[in-house]
Design a protein around this nucleic acid. Sequence first.
DNA 1: ATCTGTTATGTTACCGCTAACAGCCAGATC
DNA 2: GATCTGGCTGTTAGCGGTAACATAACAGAT
Lengths: 344, 344
Amino acid sequence: MTKPVVPDFRRTLTLRDVSEASGVSEMTVSRVLRNRGDVSDTTRERVLEAARRLGYVPNKIAGALASQRVNLVGVIIPSLSNMVFPEVMTGISDVLEDTGLQPVVGVTNYLPEREESVIYEMLSWRPSGLILAGLEHSEASQAMLAQAGVPVVEIMDIDGTPVDSAVGISHRRAGRQMAEAIVAAGYRRIAFLGTQMPNDHRAKKRLAGFEEALAREGLALADREFYSGGSALLKGREMTEAVLKRSPDVDFLYYSNDMIGAGGLLYCLAQGIDVPGRVGLAGFNGVELLDGLPRRLATMDACRLDIGRLAAEIIAGKRPDGIVGGEIIELSPTLQPGDTIRKV
Amino acid sequence: MTKPVVPDFRRTLTLRDVSEASGVSEMTVSRVLRNRGDVSDTTRERVLEAARRLGYVPNKIAGALASQRVNLVGVIIPSLSNMVFPEVMTGISDVLEDTGLQPVVGVTNYLPEREESVIYEMLSWRPSGLILAGLEHSEASQAMLAQAGVPVVEIMDIDGTPVDSAVGISHRRAGRQMAEAIVAAGYRRIAFLGTQMPNDHRAKKRLAGFEEALAREGLALADREFYSGGSALLKGREMTEAVLKRSPDVDFLYYSNDMIGAGGLLYCLAQGIDVPGRVGLAGFNGVELLDGLPRRLATMDACRLDIGRLAAEIIAGKRPDGIVGGEIIELSPTLQPGDTIRKV
DNA sequence: ATCTGTTATGTTACCGCTAACAGCCAGATC
DNA sequence: GATCTGGCTGTTAGCGGTAACATAACAGAT
């Protein structure tokens, strides 16, 4: 309603401004700024000088619309505070760095409906590819991904059917392997401590594989405890205390992630409990944090860096043999026994 | 060179496709999909049905170009693995959630030249605003930000001159306050342990403020130790060991962040060192992780959630009194004495 | 019957850039 | 001298939407 006090005299700059300032056509300016096509050195210099002097920043929106090319890769993850995704991101960035592609992160907070809208939002920018965590998505999400017309890589997990490509580990198998190692070390009264999150499918699969392997040995979980929210380290302490009080005869604690496992380890050490003699412990992920603990927690690394790398390579079309899509890459996590499982 | 094996029969969908499928003009479809302007209920239904059936996802690139409006906010931070930025992001997302704006994250790895290119890249998408960590930027970066023509909020720090708005704490003052508390508790032989990072200006300012306050009391740092890279928790242990061996008479360890502080605390406890009697400890940030430690490390929270919130409010034009730009908001971090400083 | 206002829809002209193609000109070739 | 290069630059026509401005259809008021 009120007239603007400050007139907007500084219109946003366009190619035309640079073109006028340097006395060549817009097309030539465009060519210079993108390093595409032949331009004489003198012209190039003049254009660059003008662009720099004016402080011109190209408008990628217009560029993308005209060229039908967008140098963005959507990366959709459940959470940033997880300690696991930063490393995946590092792998992705490493590979994309010299491809001209740029990752753009979206966070879903483990909510399928949130994921749906993030996918929609991302696709509406017509990215060159999509990387997203997990194989479980709403029907609408699946439909969008299938229609997207760009490479889609589902990461972290391979127990299921991907829309297009997948890079990850089998969490089911990871759970089995850990159970086998624990049983082999002579533990028998085993408890599980983990997240409550109904949508953390990977944790759920690990537990399923774990119980499956126990069953095969004629064993069942002796106890189980769940949490949600709050400081994972603290929750680990609290849950550990609760389980050990409730089931004093438990001799092994299997945690769904390293953070709560670390909390449990600190609790046991503080209580003077003999680890791994009286109680054994194991987590999952292989997070860097563990290196600083008084004792090395048994864990299983989830190949996060490699997962990021490979996913990015698929998007960037860098896979050997020029494989184009529909690739499923299973990585093998390695068990790191640390100091919290008895040696056999 | 080779002909594509699979013909691209599934062209990408446009408004025209939906328009034809529903028998109305493109404009009407556009109105329906954006919920703007009056459209009859029957038409709306028909359009939505067609859009859903076709799996149409609007092209925001074209939309943004035509409307000169981009619902993105660039957020530029030095690192994801820091534990400090996820919380800032949470604050930002909370506020932006119901404004139609969407955060887009860029990471600089503490490299000014990398920051420069991230800023350039972001501005080339003409976002509605920019939030970036710190007040120190290359000249070229400053120029771009000043020219950007959108709100720019520099966060975390207010010791310096912002380009436009700033929300943060005074790290210099935070350092001073901590030093005063330490001296007041009777400690005299104080050591500093921190990051080597030449570009972590905030850590540097904390140290400067810290030394300044010590000097005012006639004191100087008894020792100092720096690190770079690796697991912060582990580095904290190692540095602490090094310092205590080298300078056995040191009675306080001031860490530049909570993670290395936690490492130091674990080391001291494992060594049976009397904390806070023989040695006092303090960190910085107030990270959630600390809640799970055997003893509560003294720290200073950096108001990360509030910083994110306020920055987002400025971008979204939600500040009370309709303040528009050039706002500088200083928050006051609170000292959390924990259990690692002697009570006076 | 005409006027007015409201609601629902369509038309037109861009937004800022790039693909594709069309010139132009100096020097080489025949 | 005519033709043919190949390097450099310009012209034209969109890309897929949306703002702004018609227009149409119809109810109620005059």
